[in-house]
Design a protein around this nucleic acid. Structure first.
Length: 582
RNA sequence: GCGGCUGUAGUCUAGUCUGGUUAGGACUUGGGCCUUCCAAGCCUACGACCCGGGUUCAAAUCCCGGCAGCCGCACCA
C-alpha cells in the first residue's frame, strides 16, 4: 500500500515518526523529523504567502491555553462533549443520547446529563449489547483540561481550534483595520483535542497544527472584488444534492457554481478556488481533490454553508484536509453576550437616511407636579415606546397606561404633545459574518507526501515542487577522489552561503547517491567530475527525469537559486545550457 | 473504551509450538578498497528479543499485567 511505503520512508529518512517511541509511544502524537520540520515550515510559509502577502490578511498569535470563560462563550465547554454511559456488566461504553434514541426513539440532543440519567433510569433502558444496567451519564469533553496559576483555582483548556484566538480580540483587530469591513486575520498554530481513540496516524492527532483565516464581511455583501481572477477556475464539487442522490461530484467553473447557487456566495467560492490553487502549488494533483458540501445534519447549527476539501488516499479513503465555512455571526454574537462587550461594526450608509418620525414630548409643566419624583422614570420609559402607540391609545381609550417598575401610571392626552422629528441615520451597527477557511497542516503534509510519491521501477522519489522540498540541492563527487571531493564540498558550502539548503554525499557509488537523494525528493543534484577540474563546469541533474545540463561554476549559484525558488523551470535551463548525454 | 490478532537491529525475517552454546541471515547505514554518471562488487564495523512481574537451575521461548500496532465495533462538536 502506498500509505505504508510513504510512511516507512518518512520514518526512515526523517520526515515523520510517532512521538515518545522509546517509551513505547502514545497514540495521537507525531514528531516532525529534520526533513519534516523544514517541509512543514516551507508549506506554512507558502500559506503565508497566499493569505498574508497576496490576500492582505494579517497574522496574529494567541495563547494555546485559554481560560474557561472564553471557551464557555464559544460553546466548547458545554458542547464539545459527548454524553457517555457505561454498562456496569460488560463495561462497554456508549453515547447516552444514542442509546436512548435507539431504545425509546426520543430525540434527546442537548439535554443535561442528569436528565439523560433520569431517562435511562425511568425507562429502564439497558445495555444494548448485554442487557446490563447502565451507569449515570457523564460528559466526555474532547478538550485537554489544565489549571492556571499556582493555587489551581482557575480552569483552563488547551485550545481546540485557533479561530477563537481571533474572535476574542476582535475589538482591537477592528480598530487596527480602522473599523472597515471586510478584513481578514489569520493564525497558524497548534490545537488540541483529546480524541477517544486516534488510530489513523497523522490523520487524527491529539495535538495538531491548524492554519485558519477568519474573514469578516458585511453580511449583506458576500461578493468578492477579485472574483474575476478565479471565475474560470474549475472545481470538483460534490454537492449536498449529489450526495443524497448518491451520484458523483460534478466539475464546474467557479462562475457557474455561483450562478447556479450551488455554493452560497461569491466570497466562499473565491476561498474554494484559493484552496485549490494552494494544493495545486504543493503538487497535489487535481484528480485526488474534491470539494464536499456538508449535509445539513453534519453542519454546525450556526453555519450557512460549509465545504470540506477532501483528498483521496488509499489507506483512509477521502479525508478532509481543509474546511471552508460561512460561520455567520455566531462567534462574535456569542462572545458579545458573554463578555458584555459590543463586538459589532458600524457600517455607514452610502447616503444618510432621513426618517420622519413622530416623537412623544411630555409637557413638563403639567407632568412634574402630577408625578413628582417618579417623572424621570416615566419619561425614560416613554422613550422606548412608539409614539404611534401612544397616539392610538389616546384615540381609542382616551388615555395611555404605562407600567414602570411594577407601578401603573395613566397618562392623559393633555400631558403629552407630539412632534414630527427628522432623524438622520448615517449607518447601523451589525455583527459581521465570518468566512473561515481552516487548514489541517498535518493532513496536508501527509497528502503532499502521499501524492508526490512516485515509483519508477526500483527508483522512488517525492515529486515535491522545488520550492517546498526540504533539501534543495545535493552535491556529489562523481567518484570519491580527493580532488573531486574537495571541489564538491566547497560548492556545497557556497550554496549554503547563497541560502540554498544543500548536502554533500560521497558514500557508495554515484548511482546510489542519486537514489538516496531522489528518495527524499531533492529536486536537483550537482555533480563534480573530471571536467570540472579542467573547465570549471559542473552538471545539474533534474530529479524528475534524471536529465543533466552542464553549467559553468560562475552561473551555477544563480541558476540553482532560480530553480529552487521556481523562478525558472529545468526546461528553461536545458534550453540555455549544454545537455549531457549519459 | 470493548473484542480478536501481533510485537526479534533502521527494514524484512529465522528461532518461540518442544525453555538450554556467543539470538542467525538479507537489505540498509558508517568506514575502507574499487569505480569517469544512475541502488554493481570486495573488506570491515555498528545495530535487536516492546516494558514490568511471575514460574524455573535456566525465559526471546511458558504464565500474568501493562504499552504499542493491526483488524472489527463504538466514537469523531
Amino acid at each position: 500500500m502506498k500509505n505504508d511505503e510513504v510512511m516507512n520512508i518518512a520514518k526512515k529518512r526523517g520526515f515523520l515518526w510517532s512521538s515518545f517511541e522509546i517509551y513505547s509511544g502514545s497514540a495521537g502524537f507525531f514528531d516532525y523529523g529534520p526533513l519534516g520540520a523544514i517541509l512543514k515550515n516551507k508549506i506554512m510559509n507558502k500559506w503565508r504567502d497566499y493569505y498574508v502577502v497576496r490576500e492582505g490578511f494579517y497574522e496574529i498569535e494567541s495563547p494555546t491555553i485559554m481560560p474557561e470563560e472564553a471557551l464557555k462563550a464559544s460553546g466548547h465547554v458545554d458542547h464539545f462533549t459527548d454524553p457517555m454511559t457505561e454498562c456496569k456488566d460488560c463495561l462497554e461504553v456508549f453515547r447516552a443520547d444514542h442509546v436512548i434514541k435507539e431504545a425509546a426513539g426520543e430525540e434527546v440532543e442537548g439535554l443535561e446529563n442528569e436528565e439523560l440519567t433520569d431517562i435511562l433510569k425511568d425507562q429502564q433502558i439497558c445495555c444494548p449489547r448485554c442487557g446490563g444496567g447502565l451507569s449515570k451519564v457523564w460528559s466526555y469533553n474532547l478538550m485537554f483540561q489544565t489549571v492556571i496559576g499556582a493555587k489551581g483555582k482557575k480552569t483552563g483548556y488547551m485550545r481546540p481550534e485557533t479561530a477563537q484566538g481571533i474572535f476574542i480580540p476582535f475589538k482591537r483587530l477592528l480598530r487596527f483595520f480602522r473599523g472597515k469591513l471586510p478584513f481578514g486575520v489569520v493564525q497558524m498554530g497548534k490545537a488540541y483535542r483529546n480524541e477517544i481513540s486516534p488510530r489513523q496516524g497523522v490523520i487524527r492527532l491529539r495535538e495538531f497544527t491548524q492554519a485558519e483565516a477568519e474573514i469578516f464581511v458585511d453580511p449583506r455583501d458576500k461578493t468578492h472584488p477579485r472574483f474575476a481572477e478565479v471565475a474560470d477556475d474549475t472545481l470538483t464539487l460534490y454537492s449536498r444534492e449529489k450526495q443524497v442522490e448518491e451520484e458523483g461530484p460534478v466539475k464546474l467553473f467557479a462562475q457557474q457554481a455561483v450562478s447556479e447557487g450551488m455554493i452560497s456566495s461569491e466570497i466562499l467560492t473565491y476561498q474554494l478556488c484559493l484552496a485549490k490553487r494552494f494544493l495545486d502549488d504543493l503538487g497535489i494533483p487535481d484528480e485526488v481533490i474534491r470539494f464536499r458540501q456538508h449535509l445539513p445534519s453534519e453542519m454546525a447549527h450556526y453555519a450557512i454553508d460549509c465545504w470540506d476539501v477532501e483528498v483521496e488516499t488509499d489507506r483512509y479513503g477521502w479525508i478532509e484536509i481543509i474546511g471552508i465555512a460561512d460561520r455567520t455571526d455566531f462567534d462574535l454574537k456569542s462572545h458579545s453576550e458573554h463578555s458584555k462587550e459590543d463586538l459589532r461594526v458600524f457600517i455607514e450608509y452610502d447616503e444618510p437616511k432621513t426618517v420622519r418620525k413622530l416623537a412623544v414630548k411630555p409637557d413638563m409643566k403639567k407632568f412634574g407636579p402630577i408625578f413628582k419624583g417618579d417623572s424621570p422614570k416615566i419619561i425614560k420609559a416613554l422613550e422606548d415606546v412608539e409614539a404611534s402607540h401612544v397616539e392610538k391609545a389616546f384615540a381609542d381609550e382616551g388615555s395611555f397606561k404605562i407600567e414602570v417598575e411594577g407601578k401603573d401610571y395613566e397618562l392623559s392626552p393633555d400631558l403629552i404633545n407630539f412632534e414630527e422629528k427628522e432623524e438622520i441615520t448615517r449607518g447601523e451597527k451589525i455583527f459581521p459574518h465570518v468566512i473561515e477557511p481552516s487548514y489541517g497542516i498535518d493532513r496536508i503534509i501527509y497528502s503532499v507526501l502521499l501524492h508526490t510519491y512516485t515509483q519508477e521501477g526500483e527508483r522512488t522519489y517525492f515529486k515535491l515542487p522545488a520550492d517546498i522540498a526540504p533539501l534543495e540541492v545535493s552535491v556529489f563527487p562523481l567518484v570519491n577522489k580527493e580532488s573531486l571531493a574537495k571541489n564538491a564540498l566547497h560548492i556545497k558550502d557556497c550554496l549554503r552561503k547563497e541560502g540554498i539548503i544543500s548536502e554533500y554525499d560521497s558514500s557508495g557509488t554515484i548511482g546510489r547517491r542519486y537514489a538516496r537523494s531522489d528518495e527524499i525528493g531533492v529536486p536537483f543534484a550537482v555533480t563534480v567530475d573530471h571536467d570540472t577540474l579542467n573547465d570549471d563546469t559542473v552538471t545539474i541533474r533534474n530529479r524528475d527525469d534524471s536529465k543533466q545540463v552542464r553549467v559553468p561554476l560562475s552561473d551555477v549559484y544563480s541558476v540553482l537559486g532560480d530553480l529552487v525558488s521556481c523562478k525558472t523551470s529545468f526546461r528553461d535551463v536545458e534550453a540555455e545550457y549544454k545537455k549531457v548525454n549519459s
